[in-house]
Amino acid sequence: MNRVIETDLIYQNGIHFLTIKVQGVLTGAVVGAGMEALNEYEEYAAGIPVLWDLREADLSQYTIAEMEITNRFIARHSGRRNTRSASLLPDRGAMLIARLWSVYGVDHVPMQRRGFLHLEDALEWLASDRDA
Rank of each mutant, 00 (worst) to 15 (best):
E43N: 10
R130L: 07
G93F: 13
T27L: 05
I74T: 03
M95N: 03
F17V: 13
V30P: 03
I74F: 05
W125S: 13
F73K: 05
V106N: 15
S78L: 06
E56T: 09
T19Q: 06
E68H: 11
A65D: 13
R114A: 03
W52A: 10
D121H: 12
P110S: 08
L117E: 00
L18E: 02
W52N: 11
E40I: 09
L54S: 05
G93M: 09
G47S: 08
R114W: 00
A29M: 02
H108G: 07
R84L: 11
Y62G: 07
A98N: 02
A57C: 03
M35A: 09
I97V: 08
L96S: 14
L96G: 14
L96A: 12
R113Y: 03
F116H: 06
A33G: 08
M67Y: 06
L117Y: 01
R76M: 15
E36Q: 13
V30E: 08
A86P: 10
I74N: 07
V50W: 03
H16I: 03
R113W: 00
V25Q: 00
A127I: 05
I10C: 04
L9R: 06
N71S: 08
N13A: 14
Q112C: 01
A86F: 05
P49L: 08
W101F: 08
G14W: 04
K21H: 13
R113V: 14
L18C: 04
G24Y: 11
G28L: 04
R3H: 08
F73V: 05
L119H: 02
I69Q: 06
V22Q: 09
D91K: 14
D131T: 13
I20K: 12
A132Y: 03
P49C: 10
N2D: 14
V103E: 09
N82F: 05
G32E: 13
R92Q: 10
Q23Y: 01
M95T: 04
A98S: 12
L123H: 08
E43V: 11
Y11F: 15
A94V: 08
L26C: 03
D121K: 14
A37G: 02
L126M: 12
D8V: 00
H77V: 10
I69E: 09
R72T: 12
G93K: 02
P49F: 11
L9N: 00
R76K: 15
M95F: 11
G47I: 08
L38D: 04
V50N: 01
T70A: 08
D129T: 00
E6T: 13
N2W: 11
R130Q: 03
E124R: 12
F116Y: 10
R130T: 04
E68M: 10
R55Q: 15
L38R: 04
H77I: 14
S78M: 02
A122K: 00
A29N: 10
Q12E: 15
A29C: 01
N82V: 04
W52D: 09
S60F: 15
T63M: 07
H16W: 02
A98V: 02
S102N: 11
R81W: 14
D121S: 15
Q23C: 00
S87D: 02
A94W: 09
V50R: 01
V109H: 02
L9T: 03
V109R: 01
M111W: 03
F116V: 06
Q61M: 12
Q23D: 01
